[in-house]
Design a protein around this nucleic acid. Structure first.
Lengths: 142, 142
DNA sequence: TCTTGACTTAGAGCGCGCTCGAACTCGTAG
DNA sequence: CTACGAGTTCGAGCGCGCTCTAAGTCAAGA
């Protein structure tokens, strides 16, 4: 698989793939006789996993640490596991934080909903011609 | 309240507070006769809310949009609500994504746990003197 | 043979969100 | 009176994670 196809299949750009190789996140890829990278499909699993780490907010320097342990192969499992467990805890903590923020957001949105309801109620007390069209701005707002 | 105290109480640095004012996230603060910012305690609520937006990944440009609507005051409630609702959905989606990643992480960690267990079991079959000390590296690893 | 287009490398540039430094002004405590 | 510490403005700098440009190579199709 050439870099273009890998890009399409992984969702990364070719630029990013080269960048990842440069910094060591992706292993140095075999080149064909004209120096072009030729990938094995198995790289996709690794890229996908890196994507999970990224999605969950792991900084590249930590992914790099994990990648290096992985490269070193057997004997590094405990360390890799520890790294992932630490990360898992930080992700869990972050999810909790997000959920707490969602509650605040719900409250805030609820407040606006009430305000709007009160305005509608008030509007309904006006004679027909003085009602505002839905979504109307205050006349003072430009 | 002077900027130093606000910094302590809000968790932001004085530098960041000035930066936020500069870009419009915080309202232009009243100055005392020697041009020093003097804050009302109510600013803390706003900073805290901004913190929630930040925690949930809202980019500054969107917070700015919200701040502007807020400054414009009444008549902008529907828009503010819509903005927060859109944001809430994106946060929810992100939380879902994080939870999915957590499952993958659990699986991966589970895999390492199994490997380690197998290694311990194997080790237990060796005669006493050949057992590895806990946490030992492979002899080849430097 | 010529053209096209996907690739190569090295290195510069960018958008974000701060973060810091320089040089200066005040108000207060000793 | 002086020294100090906390503030001021303006603008440069930074760490992160890409993203893009320039200039060149190569292989396959018309």
């Amino acid at each position: 698989m050439k870099i273009g196809e890998l890009a399409r299949r992984s969702g990364l750009t070719a630029h990013t793939i080269r960048y990842y190789e440069r910094i060591g996140l992706l292993p140095y890829a075999d080149r064909d006789r004209s120096s072009r990278r030729d990938y094995d499909a198995s790289i996709l699993d690794w890229i996908e996993f890196l994507g999970r780490l990224k999605t969950t907010g792991m900084p590249i320097r930590d992914m790099l640490l994990y990648a290096e342990l992985r490269d070193r192969g057997s004997g590094t499992e405990a360390e890799r596991r520890a790294l992932l467990e630490r990360h898992r805890e930080s992700v869990r903590a972050h999810v909790d934080e997000l959920n707490a923020c969602l509650l605040v957001l719900d409250t805030k949105i609820g407040g606006y909903a009430e305000t709007e309801q009160r305005m509608k109620d008030y509007d309904a007390t006006l004679p027909e011609r003085r009602r505002k069209p839905v979504g109307a701005r205050s006349p003072r707002a430009r």
